[in-house]
Design a protein around this nucleic acid. Structure first.
Lengths: 144, 144
DNA sequence: CTAACAGTTACGGAGCGTAAGAGTTC
DNA sequence: GGAACTCTTACGCTCCGTAACTGTTA
């Protein structure tokens, strides 16, 4: 039973493939978020492999959870930046930071509401469709 | 009180702009759905203006309600085709058509579930975020 | 006649997917 | 040493948004 690959490196970091498996993200997505400046890996192997720490993974998970609300990557970057700055308080304008974050939270709330509305509508719609299809179904098998 | 433009044409058809207003869609989107073969207008004016009937508008509304479930335009086209065929029964293989539609409905159901899961998760996430922000908020205004 | 409207290219852009070819690591 | 993993271009794709410039029509 020889393990050909180690999931976790001796120094505790993780390669991109393992990150992809754990978070259920594609390699491309992870690389893309790196290139876009959203989630750079903590380091690189001597040969250039991206190496991710727990904090990095958490960051990726953050993005993954935020995305379904329909935010663009640049907006998410701003949210992350604000969150980062908040984590390293004290800072110059903490109130401004908090205000920014709260604005984003409000926007996110609105998106949630909008998505929920679409969803409810779509579900009603599906019910209608199902009804129509069932009606035709009945026509195929006249009274038993 | 002179109306410069008529919302509804003498023959009962409607121009693209009015359609856009009624369905809250952009002109580009409507044109795009036309070019993509999803929702062609019933006719054109002598000068080339797209003219939409009630049936056309219904079709556009159908697409609009279906889209939030994350279907591509080509998938929607198939659904529409199946629905069209169903509406013009009798036909060669009605059972096959119904099966197709039911498959799509199942897929749509799964999408609904997935979207709902994402949404619930995102909302929980937002609550966490709000909590964090509030915590920092408190730190700014020490005991009153 | 002249505002409004509409039409048609054409290019842009976000967010990855998908090879292709070469290097790295266990 | 070799299987598995990763790297970096680079181009493709979907679904429209945005001009830009021209024609139509109420």
């Amino acid at each position: 039973m020889l393990r050909t690959t180690l999931a976790v490196m001796p120094d505790g970091t993780i390669q991109i493939g393992e990150v992809a498996r754990r978070l259920d993200l594609s390699l491309n997505t992870i690389r893309h978020w790196h290139e876009a400046g959203l989630a750079p890996p903590a380091g690189r192997s001597p040969g250039g492999f991206r190496l991710y720490t727990v904090a990095d993974i958490e960051r990726l998970a953050f993005i993954k959870r935020f995305r379904p609300l329909g935010f663009g990557l640049d907006e998410i970057r701003e949210v992350l930046a604000a969150r980062d700055a908040l984590a390293t308080l004290p800072v110059r304008e903490p109130a401004a930071l908090i205000a920014r974050l709260e604005r984003y939270i409000e926007i996110a709330n609105d998106r949630c509401a909008a998505i929920r509305a679409d969803l409810v509508d779509a579900e009603a719609f599906l019910a209608e469709l199902r009804h129509d299809v069932d009606t035709h179904q009945d026509l195929l098998e006249p009274i038993a």
